[in-house]
């Protein structure tokens, strides 16, 4: 335990290979959604459109970074008995603030995301990084780790949302990319893609693709 803390300390704000690994590992090799299986719920429910996925990603990135920073700063003072609830209180406050800001700025998107913004609180990815990493590391690596994981999460979210929006309605970010047969074009939209189950198929196939590309990710039974 103490070696972990010690190793991080001397190079507090330098950005060396270790820090880079903390940041980039969770993008593919240790992706929160497809490998660690964390934060899956929101990835499925709000990925019908890219703009929703982007807003959700921004929320998770900000909340995860600030939560990890705060938890890491007070990590030596948190009583073990109330550890989880303190982390939840910090995360819940940040999510509430994000929800309020969203409602004051992007009102129509906030209507669409409704309860799913609130569910960032129980996004196991955010709590998982706070409890699993920030509790044992100094602030700078903790923030990097949160950022890396949140970016890995955002990556999958946006890939899934782009696939679904493109195949489902022929649009990307609301712009018509594939001309629909309805409007005289050639693309017949795939209605399945706008329905919730398609998110599961897309992620399942994505996992398959990733594991074929990087065989090291295959589960050992």
């Amino acid at each position: 335990m103490s070696t972990v803390i010690g190793s991080g300390r001397p190079a507090r704000f330098t950005f060396g290979p270790n820090e880079r690994a903390t940041l980039t590992d969770p993008l593919i090799a240790n992706n929160p959604i497809t490998v660690q299986m964390l934060g899956v719920c929101s990835a499925l429910a709000i990925t019908t459109r890219v703009d929703n996925a982007v807003v959700m990603s921004v929320g998770v990135i900000l909340v995860a970074m600030i939560a990890s920073l705060a938890v890491s700063l007070i990590r030596e003072r948190i009583p073990t008995a109330i550890r989880i609830i303190v982390q939840l209180a910090i995360i819940a406050s940040l999510v509430t603030v994000f929800d309020q800001v969203l409602e004051a700025t992007f009102y129509e998107i906030s209507l669409e995301l409704s309860v799913f913004v609130g569910l960032i609180i129980t996004n196991c990815m955010v709590l998982g990084r706070a409890e699993g990493y920030a509790m044992r590391h100094p602030p700078f690596p903790a923030v990097l780790d949160a950022l890396g994981n949140a970016l890995g999460y955002a990556l999958i979210l946006i890939v899934v949302a782009a696939t679904r929006e493109l195949l489902g309605v022929g649009k990307l970010l609301g712009f018509q990319v594939l001309p629909l047969t309805r409007d005289g074009g050639w693309y017949e939209p795939n209605g399945l893609m706008v329905l919730p189950p398609s998110a599961l198929f897309v992620i399942g196939l994505l996992i398959w693709a990733m594991r074929t590309w990087w065989p090291s990710l295959v589960e050992k039974d």
Binding site: M37, P197, L200, F201, G204, I207, R211
Partner: peptide, 23 residues
Amino acid sequence: VPEGLKGLGITFIVVGLMSMAFM
């Protein structure tokens, strides 16, 4: 099940099919 789809991958697809059934 194909190698890369084993475990998590096929589970996602099964849940997708179940979800369609529930629709």
